[in-house]
Simulated assay, not measured.
Amino acid sequence: MGKTKRFWGLLLAFFVFTSLAGLQSQRANAGSSNTLYLPLITVPSLGPNLLSNASFEQGWYHLNGAPELQIPEGWQFTFKEGTNQLDPDPWNVWVPPETRVLSSAFLPPDEHDLFIWDGDQTVKVFKGFGAISFELTTAVTLSPGTYVLIIHVFPDLVVGYENGQKIWAPDPLSGEVKLIAGNGTTGWMLPIFGQKNRFRTTFTVSQTQTVTIGAAMRGRWAIQNNGWFMDDWGLYKP
């Protein structure tokens, strides 16, 4: 009986040993591979951009013959003048902004990626020590359906400089953005100053019609630089 128990004990130990060895081998083999297989994820395409001159590459014109107002071809530009209902202080009266359609040749090399996000040009709307409120829009004929409007903007809102570095406006209300799609808008939204912002809205058209598409921006106070860079806008029908 003692020999039988000893035999079965040795046999059990053998099976335990071989099982552990196999487990260690599996662990070693698993650890020897650095390949991680993930499921394929497909991001739905938004489709073609329905805006003409969406990145402002196709020239410009002078609004009302004013040399300080360069407007990208195919776009309309309007602005406020006079009493500022947001702040009645005479210092903050609405004044006409200046606009430029700038190519990379007119920007320092270290600002190309900051302000140009598609193609070789960007639109700059600005005023030094002046409060501004403006709209940049275009007319697009749309068929019934749901559309997505996306704009990119860099609020260059500066209240001063320190050691050559910009001091961004500290009050969030210093700059606001509103998307425009026909009779509907998003309401005023607060961007982050000193960086590229992306805004998006979805709207529906019930019948074929010409729709006003674009965005409005405003800087309610006459800070040192009320500046806005715009590029790479898009209108899509997913």
Score class of each variant (00 low, 15 high):
residue 50 L to C: 07
residue 149 L to K: 00
residue 147 Y to Q: 06
residue 86 L to P: 01
residue 94 W to V: 05
residue 66 A to D: 15
residue 62 H to Y: 14
residue 90 P to Y: 09
residue 52 S to K: 12
residue 128 G to N: 14
residue 36 L to S: 14
residue 78 T to A: 09
residue 116 I to V: 13
residue 45 S to V: 13
residue 139 A to Y: 00
residue 120 D to H: 11
residue 120 D to G: 07
residue 125 V to P: 01
residue 54 A to S: 15
residue 44 P to N: 04
residue 66 A to V: 15
residue 44 P to E: 05
residue 124 K to E: 07
residue 130 G to Q: 01
residue 84 N to C: 07
residue 95 V to Q: 12
residue 127 K to L: 09
residue 112 H to D: 02
residue 42 T to N: 13
residue 132 I to Q: 00
residue 117 W to V: 09
residue 59 G to F: 10
residue 71 I to G: 03
residue 118 D to T: 07
residue 69 L to I: 10
residue 117 W to K: 13
residue 102 L to C: 06
residue 109 P to H: 03
residue 111 E to K: 14
residue 75 W to Q: 08
residue 112 H to R: 09
residue 138 T to W: 01
residue 102 L to G: 03
residue 113 D to Y: 07
residue 122 T to V: 11
residue 44 P to L: 03
residue 131 A to H: 01
residue 138 T to M: 01
residue 72 P to H: 03
residue 139 A to R: 12
residue 130 G to V: 02
residue 125 V to T: 08
residue 98 E to R: 11
residue 102 L to W: 06
residue 83 T to C: 11
residue 40 L to E: 14
residue 31 G to N: 14
residue 149 L to I: 04
residue 46 L to M: 11
residue 104 S to V: 11
residue 118 D to F: 01
residue 41 I to C: 03
residue 38 L to V: 15
residue 85 Q to P: 09
residue 54 A to P: 07
residue 49 N to Y: 07
residue 51 L to P: 02
residue 59 G to Y: 10
residue 45 S to H: 12
residue 80 K to R: 15
residue 91 W to M: 14
residue 133 S to M: 11
residue 77 F to T: 02
residue 57 E to I: 08
residue 123 V to C: 04
residue 122 T to G: 04
residue 127 K to Q: 12
residue 82 G to A: 12
residue 51 L to A: 01
residue 127 K to A: 13
residue 45 S to E: 13
residue 129 F to P: 00
residue 102 L to P: 01
residue 68 E to W: 05
residue 147 Y to V: 05
residue 84 N to D: 06
residue 56 F to Q: 00
residue 47 G to W: 04
residue 55 S to I: 03
residue 147 Y to D: 06
residue 51 L to K: 04
residue 141 T to D: 10
residue 90 P to L: 09
residue 69 L to T: 06
residue 126 F to L: 07
residue 107 L to N: 05
residue 62 H to I: 00
residue 120 D to T: 13
residue 138 T to E: 03
residue 63 L to K: 06
residue 45 S to Q: 14
residue 47 G to P: 05
residue 135 E to V: 10
residue 131 A to Y: 01
residue 104 S to N: 06
residue 113 D to E: 15
residue 138 T to Y: 00
residue 105 A to W: 08
residue 99 T to I: 05
residue 67 P to F: 05
residue 69 L to P: 02
residue 74 G to P: 06
residue 125 V to C: 04
residue 92 N to I: 07
residue 95 V to P: 01
residue 133 S to A: 14
residue 77 F to S: 02
residue 81 E to V: 15
residue 135 E to S: 14
residue 60 W to D: 03
residue 137 T to L: 02
residue 138 T to G: 02
residue 140 V to N: 01
residue 124 K to M: 03
residue 58 Q to P: 02
residue 72 P to V: 07
residue 31 G to K: 11
residue 115 F to M: 03
residue 149 L to T: 02
residue 80 K to L: 15
residue 51 L to G: 02
residue 35 T to N: 12
residue 43 V to F: 14
